[in-house]
Amino acid sequence: MCANILPTDITLASQNADPAKLAAFEARITRGEKIEPGDWMPAEYRKQLVRMISQHAHSEYVGMLPEGSWITRAPNLRQKLVLIAKVQDEGGHGQYLYHAAETLGATREEMIEALLNGRAKYSSIFNYPPLTWADMGMIGWLVDGAAIKNQTMLAHCSYGPYSRAMVRICAEESFHNKQGKEMIYRYALGTPKQKAMAQDALNRWWWPTLMMFGPHDSDSPNTPQLARWGIKTKSNDELRQEFVDETIAEAHLVGLTIPDPDLRYDEASGHWLIGKIDWDEFWRVVNGDGPCNKERLAARNKAHDDGQWVREALAAYAHKSKSAI
């Protein structure tokens, strides 16, 4: 469910790499070949991928929490089944991605440890609270919609395991996105009270969703390098603009208002131009001071600690079976 490419500090790529190997590597990427575990790759390529994939995995994992909190309060059985399935998918997506990061030499132990002790970053969006049931629809429509933009791009990335994880994830996220749309259309076209709920949810999730795409291109100096290596083939602003254009058209059709007084349609370019994003808020939330950062981390730690006895039981069972043979 995540996007949020955090800025990175790629210094001059692969300064120490063998120039012939680097040229061959880049030629492979230009030819559209996938790089697979075991193939030669610049240290910086590996490092950037581990950073991106592990952050992405953590985001999926933490992404279970905001929606998980509404499972017991789903208004009917169908909605409850859908929400449980969706939360379960997010857990699965985390697993696909941890696997992809492991193929680059990162260990599961290190990654989980970094998440639990607060060192690792994850998408800022999950530090916002879902306050009403309409938020369950709005998260599917906006947050999953934004994530799919990013993930569809990454499905074409040059690293085989990451691209394959993304193909699987995109197929599953499509269900998440559509169940959200279904709910929002119903509310937006429903009773005045339902419509007000949908509008209220849009007002609260619109700006944090736009922040998921990460800082403006002018503040993302690494995008050209990541593009050259076939990791990110579209920039943050390009993806954000695609999302904005599609989503605004849809919002207007169902009679919802985008909470942006500066929003205007630019005839010349055919794009919607949005007002100023509050980047101070973005950095505050990324750096640990969002509405729910502490709660999310505490919940993950509690889940990990509460699962201790299960891990111990499984280990004891495996040990016993082995000694029985």
């Binding site: 599953e172 279904e182 259309y185």
Partner: peptide
């Protein structure tokens, strides 16, 4: 309900 085509949102829109 885990399949995207379960939701008829494209036709709806």
């Amino acid at each position: 309900y885990r399949q995207p085509h379960f939701y008829k949102v494209i036709a709806q829109l």
